[in-house]
């Protein structure tokens, strides 16, 4: 870990003027700083900022302070009642200890678990732009099958963000100049392209202050995570689904996927395919095929294509029967 200057902010404004890398839960940032993958020169401790409440918005939605811990968020009665997929996703992630520390804002910014990103002696365009990608042709079991580029095939490891994506969450930020802005989560993340080191739309010094959930999405909520051990492992494939039935037809559907891409994956086309249809096996297969039409395996992760297909079919079957 490189030496850094530490300061503690007591207000959002102060955090902004102090300038530097914000630290909240620290569960990913310190992990990376110890290995000198992240090397900030200044650290601004934002844990004392008044951003740890979950407030109801007028329209039935919720405004989640960026510092609300993953555990508190998962346990919140309103989230459990109205946004169950989010509770489920949070509870499927990490461990009790990590969830008690990890913040809502920080979780969105989690970085990839790619083994070559973590090994500083290996080429990695995300860690060191222009150095190459060792994961291509290497051990890429956990890597992307959608949206990857020849520069980077990393995946986003968050479970929470997948559910947030299905819930149409909006990221509220305060920029370095003091202006606030809102970024819908679907526009928040970037695909790797030629710049895999730039993972989201946040600008230098921009602080996530809240994450807003629109009014609850009615229907059956499910978060299905497939991983290499029964708990405490990152997703190989995960599916967040909210399906509302109207009689025998699918009235509304919202789907998001983890483990498949550089970002939590959402494809509105799939949802459009479902709405107004009667649930049946063939429909689910068509939706899964549409999801995976452009899927590209990298060798070790080829299995994710059939795994994602089967998991989605199973989730849709469960959600349409349960709804």
């Amino acid at each position: 870990m490189r030496p850094f200057e530490y300061s503690r902010a007591s207000s959002v404004g102060e955090a902004r003027t102090l300038g530097g890398r914000f630290i909240a839960g620290g569960t990913n940032l310190l992990d990376l700083m110890k290995l000198e993958i992240e090397t900030p020169e200044k650290i601004v401790d934002i844990t004392r900022l008044p951003l740890n409440e979950i407030k109801e918005t007028g329209d039935g939605g919720l405004k989640i302070g960026a510092l609300v811990t993953n555990s508190v968020l998962a346990a919140d009665e309103r989230i459990r009642r109205d946004h169950e997929v989010l509770s489920r996703a949070l509870l499927a992630g990490a461990s009790g200890q990590l969830r008690n520390k990890a913040s809502t804002g920080g979780n969105l910014l989690q970085r990839t678990r790619c083994g070559y990103f973590y090994e500083t002696s290996q080429p990695c365009n995300k860690r060191e732009p222009g150095s190459g990608c060792a994961a291509i042709g290497g051990f890429n079991r956990i890597h992307a099958i959608l949206g990857a580029s020849t520069n980077c095939i990393a995946t986003h490891p968050s479970d929470m963000a997948v559910a947030m994506m299905a819930l149409d969450a909006v990221v509220e930020t305060e920029q370095a100049d003091g202006h606030n802005r809102e970024i819908p989560l679907r526009d928040f993340y970037r695909l790797p392209g030629d710049t895999p080191h730039i993972e989201n739309e946040l600008k230098d010094g921009e602080l996530i202050v809240n994450i807003r959930l629109p009014k609850p999405k009615a229907g059956y909520h499910v978060y299905r995570k497939v991983r290499d051990r029964a708990s405490y492992a990152f997703a190989l494939v995960s599916v967040a689904a909210i399906v509302k039935m109207d009689g025998s037809e699918i009235a509304e559907a919202s789907l998001a996927f983890g483990g498949l891409a550089h970002k939590p994956w959402r494809d509105p086309k799939l949802e459009a395919m479902l709405v107004g249809q009667t649930p049946k096996r063939k429909l689910f297969e068509d939706v899964a095929d549409a999801l995976l039409a452009d899927a590209q395996g990298q060798g070790e992760n080829d299995f994710k294509i059939p795994l994602a297909r089967r998991t989605l079919i199973s989730v849709l079957s469960e959600a349409t029967q349960g709804a």
Partner: peptide, 16 residues
């Protein structure tokens, strides 16, 4: 050795 930590080298956890 690509998975040289306890996050990616999976040993059984309680839930297993």
């Amino acid at each position: 050795i690509v998975n040289h930590d306890l996050a990616e080298y999976h040993v059984p956890v309680h839930a297993d």
